[in-house]
Design a protein around this nucleic acid. Structure first.
Lengths: 248, 248
DNA sequence: TCCAATAGGGTCACAGTGACCTTATCAGGA
DNA sequence: TCCTGATAAGGTCACTGTGACCCTATTGGA
């Protein structure tokens, strides 16, 4: 409560609101995220998630999409899934001042390397495994954020058709299966996977093409269908084994 | 990008960060939320979610918990589930100034009526159905927030054991089933419900008591177990019927 | 005294699933 | 040129979870 009667700047604490974006893609069968190297203190030389201030005329969604476009150079036409993860607000998460960050997760098909020179700092794709294995240092609370984002992505692949967001417009079921293998770190049985995907109406729709140029029979190509949810959901093998609820 | 080199107050837009809390409970077999009547413009006389500023020494979680305690008068010992829903940041959502609100959802057992007089404005429980049916006007974007919160709660009951958060320390399986009926708006088959709940290890644990004073046989009492997730998840009947993914 | 409500036990058929098998096809290396 | 490895595509089988039921016993209140 304590509903304020009017808004005097002295009534509310000084705070900055930013967005950070976990831009995830698949490269060489591994999940990668885009990180930028910090050129200034604090955390100079460490890697951080791309982000920036929410401008007065935009909401956080728009700010996140703007960051996404700026960092990757993709056109607005490219279909990229973007969703809010959660907001991080620990008082000392940025030592300079109070910064509340609304974090987004983006899922994109394989993108080219970031265009160097668009700003002063370096930017590159990092394999998530290499980052979480402590190979590099992440600035601020971005290690926690990345961990939460990866868990969100893993969860999304159970209940939604978002795996197709990692793939180009057309793809084979084998490639779709490879997405699940990369995100969940475990390969699903190919035959059962085919059966389940094709049993979900609107998950994928066949197109009148086949994949050529790779070993093996001509693979039917598909594109993403209109369905957003998978009912009943797929389930991660690792989750089934545990059985006991120890998460969250 | 545009990582700032230093934080001058003129570099970032003036913005206030608040928390709003959707406090949900069960009263008479219906889901209720706590709303406060606004005594000031804008939206004077309309009802709003309880909320307030995030203070300099606390994160949003702490601010939400503080609001929860202030509004309901519950002790800190009362186990109340509190989780972040999402952040709302439309530029004009508050006509006075830029206000970014981090919204939380709390699930509580039946609580007494709010203590009047703790502040100037009125506060009371509203049945969610009555609110969403347009019976009352909600301030700001709180109608959208409430809608998102209800959907979150419905979803949480599928994958987690949080239904027990709506109940007192001990309860019967019939009462647990009534929680699902109230939240999902549809009654589950009692026998199948019993079988599924008891099949989830750690969902509920029997205590050495039975329910007396109500018609029917003595019902075994249970308390919440240690499990947080339901694997495999329960599923809403309404969701099964649809089949097609039309959500989100 | 009867009745409505419901706890608790059970059955049965069916859909979904994991594990597994088989065949055909293609690119690239020996 | 011929293997070989990879894999697309189609299939079987047993088991589990589930929805839809049925039945009986027990209790407080009309």
């Amino acid at each position: 409560m304590e509903e304020p009667t009017e808004y005097d700047p002295r009534d509310y604490p000084p705070v900055a609101v930013t967005v950070d974006v976990v831009i995830a893609t698949l490269r060489g069968g591994r999940v990668h995220v885009l990180l930028v190297e910090r050129g200034e203190q604090p955390f100079r030389g460490a890697w951080a998630l791309p982000g920036g201030f929410v401008q007065p005329d935009e909401d956080a969604d728009a700010a996140a999409r703007r960051e996404l476009v700026e960092e990757t150079g993709i056109g607005l036409a490219t279909p990229v899934h973007l969703e809010q993860l959660r907001t991080y607000s620990a008082p000392q998460r940025d030592p300079r001042m109070r910064v509340v960050s609304v974090v987004y997760v983006a899922l994109a098909p394989d993108l080219p390397d970031p265009v160097a020179g668009s700003d002063a700092v370096a930017a590159r794709w990092w394999a998530v495994d290499d980052v979480t294995d402590g190979e590099i240092d992440l600035a601020f609370d971005h290690a926690q954020i990345l961990s939460d984002a990866v868990e969100r992505i893993r969860s999304r692949l159970e209940y939604t058709t978002l795996a197709t967001s990692f793939l180009p417009r057309v793809f084979t079921l084998g490639e779709l299966r490879a997405v699940y293998a990369a995100v969940w770190g475990e390969a699903l049985d190919l035959q059962n996977f085919r059966r389940k995907v094709l049993a979900v109406p609107g998950f994928v729709e066949p197109v009148d093409e086949v994949r050529v140029g790779v070993p093996g029979p001509r693979a039917q190509l598909y594109r993403a269908g209109g369905a957003a949810e998978i009912v009943p959901p797929f389930r991660r093998p690792s989750r089934i084994v545990r059985g006991e609820g120890s998460e969250r």
